[in-house]
Nucleic acid binder design. Sequence first.
DNA 1: GCGGACTGCTTACCT
DNA 2: ACAGGTAAGCAGTCCGCG
Length: 841
Amino acid sequence: MMAAENKGRTLGDHRRGFLLSVSYNGQLRKATMKFLSEDGRSVFLVDDPVDHKPYCLCKIPPEELEKEGELSSIPGVLGFERVTRFDALTQQEVTMTKIVAADPLSISGKPSGTVRSVMKEVWEADIPYVLNYVYDLNLRPGHHYVMGGDRPEISITDIGRAVKSKLEQILGSVPPEDREMIEKSAILLEQQIPNFLRVALDIEVRTSERNRLPDPNEPKDKVVAISLLDSDGSERSFLLVMPEQGHPPKDMLSNEKVKFFDNESEMILATFEALENYPIVVTYNGDNFDLPYLRNRARSLGIPDDRIPLKMGRDSADMRTGVHIDLYRFFLNRSIQIYAFNNAYKEATLDAISSALIGKGKIQISGSINELGYEELWKYCRNDAALTLELTSFDESLVMNLVVLLMRISRAPMEEIARRAVSSWIRSLFIALHRERGILVPNREDILKLKGELVTTAIIKGKKYKGAIVLQPKPGVHFNVTVMDFASLYPSVIARYNLSYETVRCPHDECKDNRIAELPHWACRKVRGITSSVIGTLRDLRVGFYVPLSREASSKLAMKKYEVAQRALKVFLNASYGVMGAENFQFYTPPVAESVTALGRLILTDVISEAQRLGANVIYGDTDSVFLERPSEEEIATLSRRASGKFDVKLNFEKEYRYVVFSTRKKNYFGVTEEGIVDVKGLIGKKSSTPAFVKEVFSETLSILSEVKDAKQFEEAKAKVAQILRDSVERLKSRQVPVESLSFNVMMSKNIEDYKNALPQHIKAAIMSSREGSAPSAGSVISFVKVRGKLGVKPTHIASPEEIDVDKYLQVFETTCDQFLEPLGIDISSKGKSSKLVDFM
DNA sequence: GCGGACTGCTTACCT
DNA sequence: ACAGGTAAGCAGTCCGCG
């Protein structure tokens, strides 16, 4: 149905659409734009109307290139063209040669037979062609377009009056040279986000041997169940009739949501047909399993390629017309996990993520999928598809909205957001800006050659340069503690001090005295750095516009909308400093990275010494925060003024604690706010790997302590705490605690065979587990208990209460409690050899 | 042969 | 493949020790 619709869609018909993506059509040797129709229900394709060609740049003049003929061995090369670019590193115009090719693979992407492989020095050859296309045509993925004239034109609607006045407000307070960019970005981000019709797909495969996982590269096993659920609420599940299961049950045969097939090919073809009706296909791990399995199985069943609507990449699977989003890849993204979802899920499994975000999990089955009957199999498969779908729709389609906002900010197609990490998104934005302004995109080596040196040394072995300051906390209980912190310290520093790859250690002699903190580096006074202006813009948009709007908006729905934008910007800002210090980042600039942290240290230490000069009691601070005991309003205001006046950085009142408890350890404390909310930082009792039993006692103890309002109430609380600890120790000793509550849960970050050094305990447990039949792999959380005996550990599911090493647990218990009881003057630690927990009782 | 000091590895956390 | 700083537990090594 949609395939037919795709034909005849041309420019000049004034149709409207929303730019999803750009793909490359190898037959036509052209880029193809994928647009979502205005109603969000289908995709139409528009082939490149301007005959754009792949290219890269070099510094050898065309005449010489033709003479030397080293490029003649590459048939795809079409010709050479003289062009000028601005080289930001030298701050000079350069004349370059554009080497134009008929197809992207003649430029780069293969080990040999490309321009990239035969030429010594080329520029912009490693930018994927479809991205080049986006940048050169100044396309804005995630925006509305009208098909008119000789190319699609972006279509922008007016933003509301209330939003406009808010925008004008912030424009008054930012540097004039940034105003235009901020205004334009705000208007673009404000554009309406469409409703995407989407379908979730999940398949089940029945393997011939019990414990073998199906392999997409050897699709010898039958696909037995396929579920498709869409955002309109329709659903279909296809089941293969299996001789060993007998006849399908009557009620399933009459269920219109279920269809049985005798023939697997027909079932797969029906699935392909269904998928083609959707602009967006959502899977969980479909890049590596569902889609490649379907494709390869279809092939092995003799289905011709032209009936398979998939386009396979090396480690990805795309739809030919629509867009495929693999939520596994998206949620695995660290930036998404941490900054967009506040670390709400720890493990990137469908079960863990859906449980954490929508409160629903996978259907638990006792044995293997192979043993399920028709009905169980159907329900299992359908439930997975339902969870996958819901992950895109919960919270007013938060995930889809987030994806679109990230597309808009990064200027990258939808697949880039779904599949690539934050450094690619930032790279995309930076390159787009270079193209827009006619600036040559520097090679990583160009920057490194000029600005490779580092002058600071890291505290941690193996790190490249010095980072932030962490103050030694003053141990003990502190009442009425105010926490102040700098708003987006590092992005602010980058913006304020003009830190960018071309402006730090710029070529101008006149700038050399504009030194950065205590470093020998200097920052340019003459030109605005590209990266510092873009990061400054994003920060101003977030801090001045979206954060206030997300708090003040008139409706709940509007607040949510601004909240998503605020978070999307946060993802970029949080990574903006880090990428400058990341070796693989295209714009990696060591002196920029160490300048950022040096300025951060300078600003923090300055504010702290000012606080001390004022007579305030600074009890702790970490990177961008200051903890003050009983400060006066006056002191708070003075410090804020100083930060703004001297460094142009906002120092905000963050929160006030009724009291805070510090030990001697850094990054380890808990605090109770006026409302009785307990903030726990870094303590063992909060760690995800700590046994549930210990965690429970920990939080019970804390909740007692949170009731404490003043110093004298501590005495009563101490008595209660002592009682809880006594009971818990008793329960441990008498082995009343179930083994499940004693399990440590530790992430296995590599596959078992990749542990080359001494085996950590969780890996020993993982090895035992795999001998028992289950096969943990990289990313799995290993559950184990500590037992008596040589190995010392055992997977939780095969351990019994009698073998538990009670002494070990008493020790864990002791360190956990000691972390916060010691500063309270409650001493339970063992000064001698044996645990003194008992003495404490 | 054993224990303490030390190092390196690994994980989880903080900013 | 965003960064560095901190804590903690475990495994292994070295050294001293009649």
